[in-house]
Design a protein around this nucleic acid. Structure first.
Length: 434
RNA sequence: GGAGAGAUGGCUGAGCGGUUUAAAGCGCACGCCUGGAAAGCGUGUGUACCUAAACAGUACCGGGGGUUCGAAUCCCUCUCUCUCCGCCA
């Protein structure tokens, strides 16, 4: 959520920043400003009435104590009307506040000044490459073919169980998935200093609002209902990412400055309706309704937010480096960035069987946008309460990593040579037919 | 699922319709005292809104609603915690 004070004081600046996203959100600023003004004028009216009422109520109390009931009664009737007016104004304030809040919650974050201004994903600058595209003496197979030949994924039975976009990992496929999760968690906890947490996989809607999925992207979420009790529908949602529960761990809290930076990593499955997304319903693992992911979250002081973003990206890159997978880092331009982000780097791993780069990590600094929504603050040294920067990054998403890994490591005979670092986790150096 | 008990400032804990502008203690900060410290004494110590700003005003005693001139206090409702019972991986 944007700071209403900033909108009030520098509306042109906010409009200009939002305009770089190219989604027309800058047009909503006038609406926010007029609701804000309405709210403040109502507030000053109702507050002076309340001050008046409080004063008279005290006088009534004093008169009662002095045994002067007649005078007290006179004052009561005087105040009754004030009370009615207060009730009415309070309702109006509430209404205006709700309206203002609703617009504010739908405004995206302002892109940081260092972000490339662009019109679409085509304008995303490539920041760097790591490694080279692997060369094959044969035409590399697609992960779909590899999975079927090696019995790693049973696509049709996955669809039988839950519909298209749901995967049934089988045998070595299931073991490889588990090995990867374990490897990622170990890497980030042992070498990068993150504290491992294992959150609930369903969250309240407040959490979805906190990290910015709601209200705007509610159509992408899976809502949970308890049995046939429809009144419970919409109370809990399947997490679209571990970012949601983990970033909300300290919602409504005031952290001590010494607690910062706080760094968490967590595994969770991620559930996404992918309503309207291209590629849903097609076979394979590139876009599915449920995938595994290890997520990294940092809560940091604003002044170190962008330094922390760089190390966050480096932590995610380490995954691919250790597995020996070729990748590139791109920066998302203003038009391509997510709703909550002020600056985002994507890491895309090379998938030889696809002949394309696949996004396996998205690392963002959301600045205080989410902290404000969840009212998470920290007490600075001078005693002031401030909103920290919240960063999130995939470290990394699993289904696509799985794809890149088996496509990159496939051998002439159709087997998969497991990277050395993963062998102790898989307890095998090779996945072959049979 | 059933029965009961609770939720009050950083913590403990009073208050159950009107100097409560939330007692008291602990903790914390500052000051006095001291060669220095402890003890002791004194002062202060929440969040947010509003305002150009304020030691001005308003709101906040788990959340929401109601009764009243006035609610931490009474009523309704929801959430959460604890104890016991049942069910259960």
């Amino acid at each position: 959520m944007l700071d209403i004070k900033v909108i009030r004081e520098k509306p042109d600046f906010v409009r200009q920043r939002l305009a770089t996203r190219g989604a027309g959100d800058e047009a909503k600023i006038d609406e926010v400003l007029s609701l804000d003004e309405k709210r403040r004028s109502l507030l000053s009216e109702v507050e002076s009435l309340k001050a008046q009422r409080n004063r008279i109520s005290k006088e009534i109390g004093a008169l009662m104590a002095q045994k002067k009931p007649a005078e007290a009664e006179a004052k009561k009737s005087e105040t009754r009307q004030i009370g009615d007016r207060i009730t009415q104004l309070d309702h109006e304030v509430q209404e205006v506040e709700r309206a203002r809040e609703s617009v504010l919650l739908r405004l995206p974050n302002m892109p940081h000044s260092s972000v490339a201004v662009g019109l679409s994903a085509a304008d995303n600058p490539i920041v760097r490459h790591w490694g080279n595209q692997p060369q094959f003496s044969f035409t590399p197979k697609s992960h779909i073919e590899l999975c079927e030949k090696l019995g790693l994924i049973d696509f049709s039975r996955g669809a039988k169980l839950s519909g298209s976009g749901f995967l049934l990992y089988t045998h070595w496929g299931a073991r490889l998935e588990r090995a990867l999760i374990q490897f990622l968690l170990d890497l980030h906890t042992s070498e990068h200093g993150y504290v491992e947490v294992s959150p609930p996989f369903v969250v309240k809607s407040e959490c979805m609002v906190g990290t910015g999925q709601f209200p705007k992207s509610i159509d992408q979420a899976y809502a949970v209902q308890e049995g046939e009790d429809t009144s419970t529908l919409g109370k809990l949602y399947l997490v679209p990412t571990a970012e949601t529960p983990v970033a909300n761990i300290h919602r409504e809290e005031i952290l001590k400055e010494t607690q910062l930076p706080t760094k968490y990593c967590a595994y969770s499955p991620c559930f996404r309706a992918e309503a309207g997304a291209a590629g849903v319903g097609t076979r394979g693992m590139i876009r599915v309704h449920q995938f595994d992911k290890v997520e990294l979250i940092k809560i940091v002081k604003p002044e170190s937010g962008y330094e922390e973003l760089e190390t966050l990206v480096a932590n995610a890159e380490a995954v691919l480096q250790k597995l020996g997978l070729h990748y590139r880092v791109i920066q998302l331009c203003t038009a391509d960035m997510g709703f909550t982000s002020a600056k985002t780097y994507d890491i895309e791993v090379w998938a030889p069987g696809q002949g394309q780069y696949l996004e396996v990590s998205s690392c963002s600094n959301c600045e205080d946008f989410q902290a404000r929504r969840m009212n998470l603050r920290y007490k600075a040294e001078n005693g002031e309460n401030r909103f920290p920067h919240i960063l999130n990054g995939s470290g990394t998403a699993l289904a696509r990593l799985f794809v890149a890994l088996i496509e990159t490591c496939q051998q002439t005979d159709g087997s998969i040579a497991i990277p050395e670092i993963l062998q102790p986790y898989l307890k095998s150096n090779r996945i072959a037919v049979g």
